[in-house]
Write a protein that binds this DNA or RNA. Structure first.
Length: 493
DNA sequence: ATGTCC
């Protein structure tokens, strides 16, 4: 079914042969590993109205309507499902000046884990502990967070260095008409709903928290790839060889979840009212044609959730830095980058502006891309932050011109190889925990959640090899985990 | 992903 063009590039013909085929990135081992549901979802998504292009990345697996690990492009339609329920789920990396030798001692690492967990809790529904050291999130500030994202005023109110904004893929999102007013207006409409209004203060108190599932914080040792391009990029990114960097994965928490779920419901109702057929009979592929009220509302909700996710990440990084400073006084740190893998962006694809839905996919603009002109990364490409797993490491990459073939996108990590239920059934707790013991990686839980174990995910080296062989990006630095912060409430299930 | 079903 997958036709091979190069070692790690192939295609799947669309069911409707008048459509261009689905681009598939992945070596033979990766291609053989895609499950049937994932391929079916890719075919469904390809034939959905207004979709001009679909890319399946090596980390792809079955998702909500569209596969996690795909890129869906449309000049005319917006698709909430292929953005996902965790709007602007993202990665961020904080580089510290702490040397790896300074955290070799387990006692130091345990103290760091405690100091970080004290400020940035994990788990569903968790809010900030003691409102994270004096930070008070009033309703007014919460509104500003949603409307402005990481603006100077919001950053200053929350103790976030405002200069980190230039280290963001997008530090603030605007509404459907590219104004901030649209978001202010939309928020007023949302507040007319009593449930939203009641839940709003609680949602805002989740700023600076990780949540559950695959979200995590991880202390890493940086190992810069030994090539001239990698060294040059690492210097621009501000990476420090053999020093501790902190990698975070989280998104828009309960707010994004509520806004996304509500949009699915609203659009489904519209489809049913109008008798509009669902793409490939899948309700999860509901859409709104651009220019309609429904599309505008969705784009505004997406921007509000994205702004929240942005400030959430920035605050987590500020709190993590504070935690390091408490345990290791004098620690300095700066944000390397913050980049999403669950968002739709208006980008130039094949010479025209289109909505690029990245569902578990990371933007990959190479050096010289016009959109990077005003950023520090015009000469190198922006950092691409790819979590693998604690045992086998994570990776910082930078895009190559070849990324054009995947609509300037790469994967977002390793990708699941087994579902959560299968992981609980198939993986042995002792074996999972032994990995952490053997590799001397500490974590905050009593046991590591089996559904999040390294072996519940695909072979990260094979995924990375796919990206490199396809010519999409090159490695800049390897990240080696030293401790993990993660919701461990399901570890003993 | 998610006060894991309003």
């Amino acid at each position: 079914m997958i036709h091979v063009i190069e070692e790690a590039v192939g295609f799947i013909p669309a069911r409707n042969t008048s459509l261009t085929p689905i681009t598939v990135i992945g070596t033979e081992a990766i291609r053989d590993g895609f499950d049937g549901t994932c391929i079916a979802q890719a075919l469904n998504s390809r034939e959905a109205p207004g979709v001009s292009e679909l890319v399946l990345n090596p980390d792809a697996h079955a998702g909500y309507g569209a596969p996690v690990g795909c890129v869906m492009v449309s000049p005319t339609h917006i698709y909430p499902g292929p953005v996902g329920v965790d709007i602007k789920c993202s990665m961020s990396l904080l580089q510290t000046d702490v040397h790896e030798d300074d955290i070799r001692d387990k006692t130091v690492r345990r103290a760091l884990i405690e100091a970080i967990c004290e400020r940035t809790p994990t788990g569903a529904g968790k809010s900030q502990r003691s409102v994270a050291k004096g930070r008070v999130i009033t309703e007014e500030l919460g509104r500003k967070v949603c409307i402005e994202g990481a603006s100077v005023e919001v950053c200053e109110a929350l103790g976030i260095p405002p200069e980190w904004a230039e280290r963001c893929e997008d530090s603030s999102h605007r509404g459907h008409d590219r104004t901030t007013e649209a978001l202010a207006n939309r928020l007023e409409v949302l507040f007319e709903n009593n449930k939203f209004k009641e839940r709003f203060p609680g949602k805002m108190r989740q700023l600076g928290t990780y949540g559950g599932g695959n979200h995590f914080g991880e202390a890493e040792i940086v190992d810069i790839v030994n090539t001239p391009e990698a060294k040059r990029a690492a210097e621009v990114f501000g990476l420090k060889q053999d020093h501790v960097a902190f990698l975070s994965h989280c998104g828009s928490r309960g707010l994004g979840h509520d806004l996304a779920s509500n949009q699915f419901k609203v659009l489904e109702k519209m489809f049913d009212t109008w008798g509009t057929p669902y793409p490939a009979d899948d309700k999860k592929l509901v859409y709104a044609p651009l220019g309609t009220q429904e599309a505008n509302d969705y784009l505004d909700d997406m921007a509000i959730a994205a702004n929240f996710a942005t400030v959430n990440h920035m605050l987590i990084n500020a709190l993590v830095l504070e935690a390091f400073q408490e345990v290791l006084p004098g620690t300095e740190g700066h944000l390397v980058y913050f980049i999403s893998h669950n968002i739709a962006r208006h980008e130039k694809v094949r010479d025209k502006f289109q909505w690029v839905h990245r569902k578990g996919a990371t933007r990959a603009f190479p050096a010289g891309h016009f959109a990077l002109k005003e950023t520090p990364f015009y000469e190198t490409g922006h950092p691409i932050l790819l979590p693998g797993n604690p045992r086998d490491g994570s990776m910082v990459m930078a895009a190559l011109p070849g990324a054009e073939k995947s609509c300037y996108s790469v994967n977002h990590g390793a990708g699941r190889s087994m579902g959560r239920r299968a992981a609980f059934r198939n993986l042995d707790q002792k074996t999972v925990d032994a990995d952490f013991e053997d590799y001397d990686i500490l974590h905050n839980g009593r046991a590591y959640p089996r559904d999040e174990a390294p072996d519940a995910y695909k072979d990260f080296q094979e995924v990375l090899a796919s990206v490199e062989k396809a010519g999409l990006a090159h490695g800049v630095a390897r990240l080696k985990a030293r401790f993990v912060i993660k919701d461990a409430s399901k570890a003993d299930d």
